[in-house]
Design a protein around this nucleic acid. Structure first.
Lengths: 352, 352
DNA sequence: AGGCAGGCCGCAATCGTTTGCGATCCGAGG
DNA sequence: CCTCGGATCGCAAACGATTGCGGCCTGCCT
């Protein structure tokens, strides 16, 4: 007499909910979806909801995606998760994506165009709805092609020449301005710049900002005092500083393209028996973690990583929702955090 | 006369390949899949391959997943990507998962069980085939439940009591042994331990290893010289060291449960005008990045993060492929890297 | 009373693959 | 010549959801 209770070991399906509520799967679907719920009788809807609840129904996103051609996933293309710059950005991104029902696939390119191409291909084959790209070079054929193909993207920390893409970046001009102002305030007049790679938009914009800042303070812009680093890395920073020191031009301070480049300087100081900030002051860029515990604690310009990520997430959601909205870019204000790697310039200007 | 060339703007489907090759989609499917290719004539297979190639066919993973109930995705549950311990592990994991055709969803729990539950639920609803979990506490109802439900998992850096789960961890005993041996080698006899949370398996195993190491070296095991930190964090490390200092017991060295706890000590030294290593030596655990640039550079026991991740990936693939294989765990050997935070003990043993 | 407008809900197609099953064809063996 | 087995391949039913379309019923208006 007891109705035989067949137990399904697999997850409950819409069909099960419908059956339990005594309606057609189509009706159950409409009842479950807030968008279409008003197409079904309130009572019925309630019944369906209760039924779904009671058996712990979770819609199968695979099936849903197949039908709707929407996956609720985006791709996140970064050079290297191991670079401490990125984790906070990633968290910012995820914290705005998650509430919107989206998730992010993270891929690392190691700055290898080959690898980048493959990874992006993998993302596309997984049907991501958009891309957040942190690996942009100023000229970037892959991104140009993707853009032509209508792939939705937003750039973070980078721009690409001649492409109207939404992007979120720190205000490099303002940041470098803060750094330089701080140094001249301390009496430095011969300031060097360890520039980031000039094939990245931030590399050139910070270098340009550096020149402008010098001029604004009435200082000469000596081209011999800025050298380019091939990567945003410690080893390249070290190489750059060595070139600078061996160049024979005197200087009492350096503003580094980013924190890693600045940290590379520390290695050279150790190598050559110099001390920072007594021999030369250093200011970094980015405010990566644990700088306060370095030797010496690095003064740097802080940018709001988490917010950058969050803004990027929002921008991407926007461009997914309204594809033909005019690309809007956001610029975030940096701030200077002064620590012990900068000190007043020695009176003897010939220090080197 | 020219055959009208209808262009599909959407991605090519299996059906298109089949049509181009003049076969049924089923045949095309079999030809494309190496597993089933021998079921179709070699010539036909070649034709299908060529056709697929020519129109750039990429199988739709959504549809495939729906049919095969396999998604090629796994979940990666970590407390906080921002903790520098995890990025290298993540890279290790991805580098073995990717070649196997798998991808990982990363979720952060912030050590919040609530959030953890929600995140894991989200992962499961996305139909992940397995979980790599780095947030395990020794007693962990959620994991126990998942295990009962047959969810495939591997633990990283943790074990959970009474659950036979594959795991990959560093050899805590050996690591702590190295640290203590190093310190007694420097003449330290009163050594303190800032233990990690005792609700984590590593927290207790390192604490136990510490006691054993003391005994092995013929030193007294003074319970007052080990205090527990509530989290694996700087602030908890600082709190711990303050308790230790205020406890009145003399000591000349501390082995910290991990690097962050050790760095927390640095803050207290600054607070109290003490200097490391002159007043007290510190050794950390994990070898997080940039320790060499700290003040002072931190002596620590290095564990192979990347390898831990890679092993975890391999273990998970194994348990997915052969679900009822006996759970196997791997233990990775640590090594000591000596820097400037440790120095010979002062002759005056009453330093404090 | 008849007609019409909604409200509500079911039917069935569809998304793009995979796969069990059966049909066809061929050559070989009896 | 008949049969049988193997090699190929097509048919169609899945997988689990969404959704356009149309049918039914109710209630209201004229």
């Amino acid at each position: 007499m007891a109705s035989p209770k067949i137990v399904r070991m697999t997850a409950p399906r819409l069909r099960d909910v419908a059956q339990l509520a005594g309606v057609h799967p189509a009706t159950a679907s409409r009842a479950l979806n807030p968008q279409t719920r008003q197409q079904v009788n309130a009572d019925t809807a309630r019944r369906v909801l209760r039924a779904a609840e009671s058996i712990g129904y979770q819609p199968n996103p695979i099936a849903r995606s197949l039908k709707t051609a929407r996956t609720g996933t985006v791709g996140l293309v970064i050079p290297d998760l191991t670079n401490p710059l990125f984790p906070p950005i990633v968290r910012g991104i995820e914290d705005v994506l998650t509430p919107a029902g989206y998730n992010a696939w993270i891929v690392n390119t190691d700055n290898d165009p080959q690898r980048e191409e493959a990874q992006v291909e993998a993302l596309r084959s997984r049907q991501v709805e958009g891309l957040i790209v942190a690996t942009a070079r100023r000229t970037h054929p892959l991104l140009a092609r993707l853009h032509r193909q209508g792939v939705k993207m937003v750039l973070v920390n980078r721009r690409v020449d001649g492409l109207e893409l939404p992007s979120v970046t720190a205000d490099d001009d303002a940041g470098i301005g803060l750094a330089v102002a701080h140094l001249v305030g301390l009496g430095h007049t011969r300031i060097a710049h360890l520039a980031g790679p000039q094939h990245t938009s931030t590399g050139v914009s910070r270098a340009r900002a550096f020149r402008h800042a010098l001029i604004d303070h009435g200082l000469p812009d000596d081209p011999a005092l800025t050298v380019e680093c091939g990567y945003w890395s410690e080893s390249e920073g070290a190489r750059g500083l060595r070139r600078l020191l061996d160049g024979g031009r005197a200087f009492t301070a350096v503003v580094a393209g980013n924190d890693l480049i600045a940290l590379g300087c520390y290695d050279v100081f150790a190598e050559r028996g110099m001390t920072c900030p007594d021999d030369v002051s250093v200011v970094g860029f980015n405010e990566m973690p644990y700088l306060d515990k370095m030797r010496p604690p690095l003064t740097t310009v802080a940018i709001p990583h988490y917010e950058i990520g969050a803004e990027a997430g929002r921008l991407l959601l926007d461009t997914i929702d309204e594809p033909d909205r005019y690309p809007r870019s956001v610029l975030l204000a940096p701030s200077l955090v002064v620590r012990a790697s900068t000190t007043p310039a020695p009176c003897d200007a010939a220090s080197r």
